[in-house]
């Protein structure tokens, strides 16, 4: 199958690759860019495990083709870490509040939370539920995820003061 050249930015780094037009953005991130933090959950856009930020907006990378990302900027869960690769503040809050169990949905959950907190540092519980309403988690029952996002928000507000 013929290949197309794409250029895109992932977590601030520039990637150039030749890909098949049918390659999903999710498979590109995992198999070509080697960023396996973004997970495959359903490949039909329901579970949210493959969520990434696409020009700052949370989207499902399983529903997009790699060629459609040409010229765009992507953030994956790896991009939420500090420069030394250690977990960043949102990730720390998830650890402190036990906002994850198996960790499979977690990257997508973090992406949705990041997108929420970028525009709202004092979200209500309803706003948090709305933001993560498209991310399925089968382990936690969401209670501690919501607590983790509240904790991260409170830290964000403290830092902003």
């Amino acid at each position: 199958m013929s290949q197309r050249e794409i250029n895109l930015s992932i977590n601030g780094k520039t990637y150039a690759a030749a890909v098949e037009p049918r390659l999903s953005l999710l498979d590109f991130l995992r198999d070509h860019a080697g960023l396996t933090g973004t997970h495959v959950g359903c490949e039909h856009g329901v579970c949210g495990a493959c969520s990434i930020l696409f020009d700052g907006v949370p989207i499902r990378s399983c529903l997009m083709l790699a060629v459609q990302a040409d010229g765009h900027a992507i953030t994956t869960v790896e991009g939420l870490c500090n420069e030394d690769g250690a977990p960043g503040p949102l990730q720390d809050a998830f650890q402190e509040a036990h906002g994850l169990q198996c960790g499979y949905c977690t990257p997508g959950m973090l992406i949705s939370a990041q997108a929420l907190l970028a525009g709202n540092s004092d979200p209500s519980i309803a706003e948090i539920k709305d933001a993560i309403g498209g991310n399925l988690c089968r382990c936690t029952g969401y209670v501690q995820i919501i607590e983790a996002i509240q904790l991260a928000a409170s830290r964000l507000r403290e830092a902003g003061q």
């Binding site: 960023l35 396996t36 933090g37 973004t38 997970h39 994956t76 869960v77 790896e78 870490c81 690769g85 250690a86 977990p87 990730q91 998830f94 650890q95 994850l100 960790g103 499979y104 977690t106 990257p107 973090l110």
Partner: peptide, 11 residues
């Protein structure tokens, strides 16, 4: 948690 949160788990 640190590995799972950083996207460095090994599933």
């Amino acid at each position: 948690d640190p590995r799972l949160l950083a996207g460095r788990g090994a599933f």
